[in-house]
Each structure stands twice: as C-alpha cells, then as structure tokens.
Simulated assay, not measured.
Amino acid sequence: MIRFLFRFVGLWILAGGFVALVLDGVRSIASSEIVTTPLGVTWLATSPDSLARFQSFVETSLSPAVWETAAVPVLNAPLFVVLGVLGLLLMLIGHKKGE
C-alpha cells in the first residue's frame, strides 16, 4: 500500500514538473530566449509565509551555512528540474522489486 502511495504521489509531482517544463518552454518561445522559473520564485508567489518559516527553521535548527549551501541552490534551480527529480525519486522508492 505504501509503495502505491509513493508511486501515486511521485507520478503527480512528475506531472507537475512536466507542466512547469511546458510553461517555461512557451515563455522561452515567446521571448526568443531560454526562460526558466526557479523553485524559490514559485514558492514565494504561492506562499511567502511558509518560505519565510522554512528559512527560519533551517537557520535556527541546523545552521545559516546549511541554508546558504544547500537550500539556496535548490531554490534557485528550475522548478521543472526539482519536481522531476523529486517525482522520479518517489517513483523509484515505490518501485516493485520484481519489475
């Protein structure tokens, strides 16, 4: 049951990554240059309070250096890459051993 849940959620996240890729592709064609939307920009646009809470959590629980070296590069990565990697990772976790 839990493997199904991992695969199900992974497939939806992967689909979201594909949608983000298509949107970036459309914007790139329209502007005649490569345009990517970073994860941090999308997160800030949808829920700025949770991004601020996440930053304060990481900086107080772990270290401000962890925020700068680990979280900031992920937040600057294109949304479709982050969602694609996360979706594939969840699908691999939920993968049946026999297949």
Rank of each mutant, 00 (worst) to 15 (best):
Q55C: 14
S56F: 06
G16H: 02
L44K: 09
L39V: 11
V26D: 11
G94Y: 00
S47G: 15
I34Q: 09
I2D: 00
D49N: 14
N76D: 14
Q55T: 12
V81T: 04
T37F: 00
R3E: 11
A30D: 14
S56G: 07
W67R: 02
L89T: 09
V41N: 08
V41Q: 10
F18T: 11
M91F: 06
G25N: 05
F54T: 12
A45M: 06
K96I: 00
R3G: 15
V74G: 12
P73A: 08
V22F: 13
F6E: 02
F18P: 10
V58D: 05
K96G: 07
P73T: 04
V82G: 07
I93E: 04
E99P: 12
V72K: 10
L44S: 14
F18Y: 11
L14W: 04
I13S: 10
L44M: 13
P38A: 00
T69Y: 09
V26N: 12
F8K: 06
L23C: 12
I2R: 01
L90Q: 00
L86N: 08
L89Q: 02
L11H: 06
G84W: 01
G16Y: 02
V66I: 09
S31C: 01
S50D: 12
P64T: 01
F57L: 10
E33I: 03
A45I: 02
N76H: 10
V22C: 14
L62G: 03
